[in-house]
């Protein structure tokens, strides 16, 4: 028992270090700029009403607006009217820090658009990968044809090439055909997953031949066999591969950073966060941490819900 206490002690210290940035991220996303600067306020901050200076500044009335408002305040001078309007603005622009941070995250940058882009890109990558890899894996596992060994050898060779490593020539090729700054540029390099082919082939090898022969007897074409017989048997492996693929591409920063320049329309979540950081001044720490929280949360929640599947999927590359 005492031995176990030592183990827990070590593991808890590790857990504190691992969790520290997550804790700080959440905590900063709740706090007001002042509390972040001074490092006070505990985890949630005091949540005292704060005034958004930018919002107030926007409501500062000009001469015409004061003139327009004059009838409402008979007998008051212009500067008094301005003071009244500004006082009202301060009331309208005050909010809890947590509301300020999270609303700013969505208002200051098109965060919803970024999230949508992230979903579009990761989902299309996964579907194209399956569309390309599954038939090839079936052919390599179950069909006899001249050149099969050579094709499989090629797959094994291509496993050696990380796509990030050849990003520069890929970028040049895409630029030459005018595809940079398009969704296509974000998806195309990932359409071929040699790893997916390899994995699916290994899985299909375990599917009994009788199943396929029976389907052939029923008059199914090979194409139909892939999608109507092999695909359903491969669901567990595909699920693991889906998690592997989606986590990798939701979190990817390097490739989008290369092919998407300028237009915010195409930003994926990490790019959006990066840009936010680029033009953030000190008072925007809170909203930025809110953005980071929003980007990190979907995968973390999914992971906590379906832990075993996730660990299986992410460590897929460890399966032999």
């Amino acid at each position: 028992m005492t031995r176990d206490i030592w183990k827990h002690l070590i593991l808890v210290i590790g857990a504190i270090i691992v969790l520290a940035p997550f804790y700080m991220m959440l905590s900063y996303s709740f706090k007001s700029p002042g509390e972040i600067d001074r490092g006070v306020g505990g985890f949630f901050g005091a949540q005292e009403m704060m005034v958004d200076p930018r919002c107030v500044k926007l409501r500062d009335p000009n001469r015409d607006e004061i003139a327009a408002a004059a009838p409402q305040y008979p007998g008051k001078s212009d500067s008094e009217i301005r003071a009244v309007i500004m006082a009202q603005a301060e009331i309208d622009c005050s909010m809890r820090p947590v509301v300020f941070n999270y609303s700013k995250a969505f208002i200051e940058a098109p965060l919803l658009r970024y999230l949508l882009n992230g979903v579009i890109v990761t989902v299309s990558i996964f579907f194209v990968q399956v569309l390309v890899a599954l038939p090839a894996a079936y052919a390599l596992a179950k069909l006899k044809f001249w050149g099969r060994e050579a094709v499989f050898g090629l797959v094994l060779f291509c496993l050696l090439i990380p796509v990030h490593a050849i990003a520069l020539p890929l970028y040049i090729m895409l630029a030459k055909v005018g595809l940079t700054n398009t969704y296509a540029a974000l998806v195309v390099p990932w359409t071929i997953s040699v790893f997916g082919i390899f994995l699916m082939r290994q899985f299909f090898m375990t599917v009994p031949d009788d199943l396929i022969d029976a389907a052939r007897m029923d008059g199914m074409t090979e194409f139909a066999i892939v999608w109507r017989v092999m695909l359903p048997t491969a669901i567990p492996a595909l699920l693991a591969f889906a998690i592997f693929s989606i986590v990798a591409h939701w979190n990817d920063y390097f490739w989008p950073r290369i092919v998407v320049t300028g237009s915010r329309e195409l930003f994926t979540p990490p790019l959006g966060l990066r840009e936010f950081k680029g033009d953030a001044d000190g008072s925007f720490f809170g909203p930025m941490m809110a953005t980071a929280t929003i980007i990190v949360t979907p995968l973390i929640v999914a992971f906590l819900v379906a832990q075993r599947r996730f660990i299986e999927g992410i460590t897929l590359s460890g399966m032999k």
Partner: peptide, 28 residues
């Protein structure tokens, strides 16, 4: 027939493998 189908099924993957993985290595 089986050989022909097999090549049909594998050809998109093969084409992309050349275009996206091998050609860039040569280009670089």
């Amino acid at each position: 027939r089986q050989a022909r189908t097999a090549w049909c099924l594998a050809s998109p993957a093969l084409a992309l493998m050349f275009l996206i993985l091998l050609v860039p290595v040569v280009v670089a």
